[in-house]
Simulated scan of single mutants.
Amino acid sequence: MTGGRNAENEVRLRPPRNTLDGRAVGWWRTRLLLTTAAPAGVLAVLGALIGPASSWLFAAAGAVALLGLGCTAFLPAWWYRVHRWEVTEDAVYVRTGALWQEWRIAPMSRIQTVDTVRGPLEQAFRLATVTVTTASSKGALRIEGLDHELAAELAERLTAITRATPGDAT
């Protein structure tokens, strides 16, 4: 025993084993393209409408488009390589982030709610996000980019495990 706790029963932060669904790459790319198209389009329309500033506005639209296309080409594949998740009988493990990686763990006894969300774009890619809300001030854990059927099964499994886990989730 260490500090009054049984070391065998402690949940430790460790690398999660599961990757996201491969369709998450396409979903992220589509999101980035849409996010890029909006400001680039607005700048291009303004450039067409405002004669004296058109060269600057067209240049800005081109710069935004190039930056967005570069991000779209490289970031989703990188995100796919670094995002991981896992659920055990003891905890939910999530690792996210590309430059600033965040590793989080939620012991089953701390879980308050489990939600599954499917936005319009996620539905088009047959994906879903599972959100695990805990009593942590850091906020909920999100596992994005899961196959929608796996996400539903995962939510059911988490609900069953947390129901059977002693604790007050506060």
Rank of each mutant, 00 (worst) to 15 (best):
L127G: 10
R29P: 06
M1H: 01
E102L: 15
A7G: 04
A155M: 07
T116G: 00
R126M: 03
L66C: 10
L32E: 09
F58T: 04
S137W: 10
G4Q: 01
V94G: 11
T131I: 02
A48R: 13
A37M: 08
G97V: 08
P166M: 05
I111L: 10
T30Y: 04
P120M: 01
A7L: 15
G47D: 03
R142P: 05
T159K: 08
R29G: 01
P76A: 12
V114G: 08
R110L: 15
R12E: 03
L150Q: 10
P39C: 11
A61Q: 07
L121V: 13
V117N: 10
P76T: 11
L146Q: 03
A151C: 09
H148A: 14
A7C: 03
T72N: 05
L150W: 05
E122N: 04
R23I: 00
M108G: 06
W100E: 08
V82K: 13
V11Y: 13
E86I: 14
L146C: 11
A124K: 14
L49M: 11
A140D: 11
V45Q: 03
Y93A: 06
A77T: 01
L67V: 13
G119Q: 02
W78D: 00
W100P: 01
R104Y: 02
R5N: 00
A169Q: 09
E122H: 00
L46A: 15
F125Q: 03
Y80E: 02
E144R: 08
W100I: 09
N6D: 15
S109W: 04
T134L: 09
S137C: 02
E153G: 13
A40G: 11
W79T: 03
Q123M: 14
E8D: 14
A7S: 13
E156K: 12
H148E: 06
R14A: 10
T162W: 05
Q123E: 02
R95Y: 07
E89C: 08
E156C: 02
R157D: 07
W78F: 12
I50N: 09
T96L: 07
I161G: 07
D147W: 01
Y93S: 05
P166A: 10
A155C: 06
V114S: 11
T35D: 06
K138D: 13
L20D: 04
L154T: 09
D147C: 07
G22Y: 10
D147G: 05
A106T: 10
V130K: 01
R163S: 05
T72E: 07
D21G: 05
A63H: 08
W103R: 14
E10K: 01
G145L: 04
I111D: 00
A38Y: 01
T134C: 11
T113C: 09
A53V: 03
L67Q: 04
V130F: 13
T131A: 13
L43F: 15
R23W: 06
S137F: 13
T134H: 04
V45K: 00
P52C: 00
A77L: 11
P52A: 02
G70M: 15
V132D: 02
I161E: 02
G119Y: 12
I105H: 03
G167K: 12
R84S: 02
G4M: 00
G4N: 05
P120W: 00
R84P: 03
R126V: 00
